[in-house]
Amino acid sequence: MNPIAWRLATMTAIRDETPTVRSFTLSIPDWGGHRAGQHVDLRLTAEDGYSVERSYSIASEPERAGEIDLTVERIDDGEVSPFLHDVVVVGDRIEVRGPIGGYFVWEAAGPMATEPLFLVAGGSGVVPLMAMLRHRARSGAHNPTRLLFSSRHLEEVIYREELDSLAATSDGLEVVHTLTRSQPAGWMGYNRRIDDRMIADVLAPLGMGSRSFICGPTALVEVAANALVRLGLPGDRIRTERFGPTGT
């Protein structure tokens, strides 16, 4: 089936990730599968014909058949995310097209399956990287992998428990958190925004043969990508995705 065609998906599950972030499971007829890091477009159409589209990264691993998870942060002045959070219930149908994208994709195949993998996320930028980590775990890859994940507060860390359990499996994954606004008592992790020194320190054990994916707000992506370039990581091994509301 043409991946670019709009088709109707059915909401089959909704669950809270953090106070402002929820995951939505969509069952999609004839879904031909996706690659970790790809996204879909959602389209909402009002009765008067006004329609709005937004892109959301797929959070689930490609190994799951016939359905995808999207993890969406509620943006107060947004048009689509408040609808998803406040209005949509299980059983509702929503227009979807995809999967879309090939630039920001990691696959447990070919050289990527064994190369060190350095992931950098800010806030809900973790979503496509989580698809990569879930795919990595399901595929049994053991390549050295580190996720540097910036959140404001501990309670805003998306997928916190799942990341803890993935990192506990001793398959080569380490998760490094930085909390930029508040830290719980006894916090041993980073407590500042991502900077050159943090990138250098977290990348060091992986080395310059790493492949890197960075996703988050534009400012974070710029800082992290520029730091990697200065450290000497070849530009063609750095892939970035800036997120934010798209004006379509």
């Binding site: 879309i100 994208g101 707000p217 534009t218 800036r242 934010g244």
Partner: peptide, 12 residues
């Protein structure tokens, strides 16, 4: 700070 990248309009 609002700049995204080509991925943002990939579907379009």
């Amino acid at each position: 700070a609002q700049v995204l990248d080509g991925n943002a309009v990939a579907g379009l």
